[in-house]
Simulated assay, not measured.
Amino acid sequence: MNEVRTIAVAADEAGVRLDRWFRRRWPHLGQGQLQKLIRSGQVRVDGARAKADARLEAGALVRVPPLPDAPPSERDRPLSSRDAAFARSLTLYEDDEVLVLNKPAGLAVQGGTKTSRHVDGLLGAWGEGLTRPRLVHRLDRDTSGVLVLGKSPQAAARLSGAFARRRAQKTYWAIVMGFPKPGEGVLDLPLVKRGVGDRELMVPAEPKEPRAEAAQTEFVTIARAGPRAAWMALRPLTGRTHQLRAHMKAMGHPILGDPKYGDEASRELSGDLKLQLHARRLVLPHPTKGTLVLEAPLSPEMREGFARFGFDEHEAAHDPFQGPGRR
């Protein structure tokens, strides 16, 4: 990367150390290289120098200086015309400031040591430098649905700020195991990360436990397939890692097709289903005008789940959390 970039910190990256934020995006950077860039002031946060252990706030603008290229096999390979066409085929909405994609299940949002194909790597389809869209929030690799990006540093900062101030209203659809009782409500259950590496999980925590993070999820059951499974609308009121998956497991109704948070019973019921979690709807302020109301059609993976349990997507209200259709 041979140009200076300004990247907005996404809402779910709030609290991450500056050096770790860099390593997540550019894992090929050596620690010595990164420390030199930070110490010399080439890296800045909101225009000011920052230390490697500084905790980032959502919406903060990080100045990223020119970085050494990663090996072509890992990052920054020139986009093929096929990849560029694929990236553009995901577009749900686009204007001069905002790009919205319908992220497919199985496609990571950002790269890592074992991930060479991801949304961030496809954004060159819209250009490089200041014209390259910027991520403002994330979805899990196996979660499909609405993903919003800013098309300028200013738009990205405003969008990130909307997520950080909880002005983004997110509605997910999920198929879970069992017959949830109560069928609607708010689960207020702090979460804490435990484990190492790929085995890290978010688990329930005591409110005063060190590193515990407050987490609230609003939920409503839209339809049931007898005692076997339920189609639910989930609204995260906070933005913790794997929050919905961890909360549904804690309720005793794990999301079907979840290899990480499922149990033996849910895995048996899931069979060959992939993760049944879809970012269906997002309502948030446009960076400069009005309100964005965005919906993603069901993914092929979710359609399989709906077909298996006899659910009809037209049964749900646009907003299952209010008005007719709430049950």
Rank of each mutant, 00 (worst) to 15 (best):
K170P: 03
L99E: 01
L234S: 02
K151C: 09
D272H: 07
V62P: 00
Q216S: 14
N2I: 07
T143E: 00
P210D: 05
V196C: 05
K193S: 14
V100H: 01
M302D: 08
H118G: 05
E94R: 14
V100R: 02
G41S: 03
D46K: 02
E97P: 01
A108G: 01
D263C: 11
T221Q: 07
R245V: 12
E94N: 11
V98M: 06
K51S: 13
A50R: 04
R24K: 13
D272L: 06
F306G: 09
F22N: 01
L244D: 03
S81F: 03
D188P: 08
A250I: 09
R166A: 14
A296D: 00
F86H: 00
A214H: 14
L122A: 09
R280A: 07
A11C: 10
G178L: 05
A223I: 07
D83T: 00
G111F: 08
I175Y: 04
A125Q: 01
P287G: 13
D19T: 11
Q169M: 07
E218C: 06
S266T: 14
P324M: 12
A279H: 08
R25V: 05
R25M: 00
D53C: 08
D120P: 01
R167N: 12
V9L: 09
K289D: 14
K260F: 09
K249S: 12
A70V: 03
P68T: 14
V43R: 00
R63H: 05
A58E: 03
G111E: 02
L275V: 05
